[in-house]
Structures are given as structure tokens and as C-alpha cells.
């Protein structure tokens, strides 16, 4: 063995000694389950000592005929279609406001970020009380300003999703506000100065400088948010439990019920693969879109 080979071998040993503690745990508890989910999606299994039966794409065929699955998919999309754009606009505008250099601005940032770190169970409990249809503060307020029949919120099939969307936006807006703030601080002040000399007003600066300069961030936020929407579970579970009826039953609710209520592990994994494919497509669209539309200076 030459000394060069020896050195390489030694480097390999050192390198692996560093990553092994993590790699072992990571392989057993994350990597293998990820790979296993593809296999399980092709099988039928109740989790007992009964053997796993391979059924090919049967689970996926069943999913396509399953009305609950279809509803959960539609509900998830509804949730995403409203949550994503509203959160983007709200967090961007907030960031622009909070980028001002005035006294006490750090306190305001803290206030807006606060809901993000609060536990979903606690937050869900409060909002459910705020949304209480008969005596809750929200409906009391709506009656006060003259709305005769305020919505039933979480107990109404038409309004439960709206309630969940409102809470989601409230909870996650602060997180993306911070992402936007970091991006705003990267925009060169000379752009605004130049626009000011040309006589641009505040709105024009926002419209023609800030928003275009933030496109890469907006793309990133859009993808993060969309993925986050497709994997929503906790908030809905604690606020509505997927109900009333199936009104807020989302994709992960479906996976959870199939696996841990009905013990159809293969079927649940197939639905999880659908979730994976959606996330994959969203991520790929981002990569393509970033190259095409994003305005880099």
C-alpha cells in the first residue's frame, strides 16, 4: 500500500467516525422508513402478525374511488389556495412596515412573531373559544357592528375551513415576515434614492422596486407555505377534528385515520405517497420557475 492510499484510508476512517453517530440513527429512524413507505404503499397489512400481502397498485386504485380521500384532497387544496397567497401578502406588507427605522420596532417584531412559537394545542383551545358561536368574543363583536347572523365558525360546515385558515394565517405570518425582513435588508438603499430623485412616491417604490426585488424570496416562501399547507394536521385536529362531517378533513387526517384508527397501513402509506408526489411536484416547479421568472439583479 502506498502512503497516499494509506492517507486516504485514514481520512475515510476519520470522516466516518465523525458522521457515524448521526448516520446510524438517521438511517434506522428516517432513511429506512422513507424507503419502506414506498414498499408499504404497494401492500396490504393490518400491522398484526398477519403476513404483508403485496397487491401492486391496488391501494392507489382504491384511493381514486374513495370519496373521503377525494374530499380530503379537495379540502387540502382549498386550505392551501387561500392560506398561501394571503399569508404571502400579509407577511410581505408586515415586513415592509417593520423595516422602518423607528424606536421600539423590535418590540413590534416580537409581537408578530409570537404566535409562531406558541403551542398549537393551546392556541387551538383559545381560538375555539374566541370563535364560540353564541357568546364568543368574535361573534359578540360582529353582532355589535350590526351583523345579525354571524357565522357558526368551527361548528358550521361552511365556515369551519374559514376559521382554520384565519388561525393559520395568524400563526405563521410572523415566521415569513422574518424571512422577508432578512431579504429586505439585502436590497440596496441606492435603488430607493435613485427612484426618489426621479420623483417616485411610496407606492411606486413598493410596486416597482420592493416587490420585484423580493421575487426570489416570494418564490421560496410560496413553496415552503404550499408544502406546509399540504402537511397540515395538528391545527385542524385540535380545532375541528376534521369536522363537522368531513368539512375540514385534510390529507394528513386521512392518512392518520387510515393508519391509526383503521389499521390499514398499506392504504395509509399509499395516501402518504400521494402527499410525497405533491410535495415533489411543488419543489420541482419551484426549481423550474426560479430559473424562468425570478428577477435577479
Amino acid at each position: 500500500m502506498t502512503s497516499k492510499q494509506k492517507r486516504r484510508l485514514k481520512n475515510d476512517a476519520i470522516g466516518y467516525s465523525f458522521i457515524l453517530p448521526n448516520l446510524i440513527g438517521y438511517s434506522i429512524f428516517i432513511l429506512i422508513p422513507v424507503l419502506f413507505s414506498f414498499i408499504l404503499s404497494l401492500a396490504e397489512w393490518d400491522g398484526s402478525s398477519n403476513p404483508i400481502v403485496f397487491v401492486g397498485l391496488e391501494n392507489f386504485r382504491h384511493l381514486m374511488d374513495d370519496s373521503t380521500f377525494k374530499i380530503s384532497l379537495v379540502n387540502t387544496m382549498k386550505y392551501a389556495v387561500f392560506t398561501v397567497p394571503i399569508t404571502i401578502v400579509a407577511s410581505m406588507l408586515l415586513a415592509v412596515l417593520l423595516n422602518s427605522k423607528v424606536k421600539g420596532i423590535a418590540w413590534f417584531r416580537t409581537a408578530f412573531f409570537f404566535p409562531y412559537i406558541a403551542s398549537i394545542v393551546a392556541v387551538g383551545a383559545v381560538w375555539n373559544m374566541l370563535f364560540q358561536p353564541d357568546y364568543g368574543p368574535i361573534n359578540t363583536f360582529l353582532k355589535m357592528i350590526g351583523i345579525q347572523n354571524p357565522p357558526g365558525w368551527v361548528i358550521s360546515t361552511d365556515w369551519a375551513m374559514v376559521a382554520v385558515i384565519i388561525v393559520s394565517i395568524w400563526k405563521y405570518m410572523g415566521y415569513y415576515m422574518i424571512v422577508y425582513l432578512a431579504a429586505l435588508q439585502g436590497i440596496s438603499g441606492s435603488l430607493y434614492e435613485a427612484a426618489g430623485i426621479d420623483g417616485a412616491n411610496g407606492w411606486q417604490k413598493l410596486r416597482y422596486i420592493t416587490v420585484p426585488m423580493l421575487t426570489p424570496t416570494t418564490f421560496f416562501v410560496m413553496v415552503m407555505l404550499t408544502i406546509q399547507c399540504f402537511k397540515v394536521f395538528d391545527l385542524i385536529y385540535v380545532m375541528t377534528g376534521g369536522g363537522p362531517g368531513r368539512a375540514t378533513n385534510v390529507l394528513v387526517n386521512f392518512i392518520y385515520n387510515a393508519a391509526f384508527v383503521q389499521f390499514k397501513f398499506g392504504y395509509a402509506s399509499a395516501a402518504a405517497i400521494v402527499l410525497f408526489l405533491i410535495v415533489l411536484v411543488v419543489t420541482l416547479v419551484q426549481f423550474r420557475g426560479e430559473k424562468k421568472f425570478v428577477n435577479y439583479m
Binding site: I30, I32, P33, F36, L40, A259, A272, L275, F276, V279
Partner: peptide, 15 residues
Amino acid sequence: IAVPWQVYMVPQFVL
């Protein structure tokens, strides 16, 4: 990192 936990939580539970 890009694979949400919800995708593999079922096989992880089985394992």
C-alpha cells in the same frame, strides 16, 4: 429534508 415527516410516519411507526 424535503420529505415531510407525514410521508413516512406510518412506516416509521410500524418499524
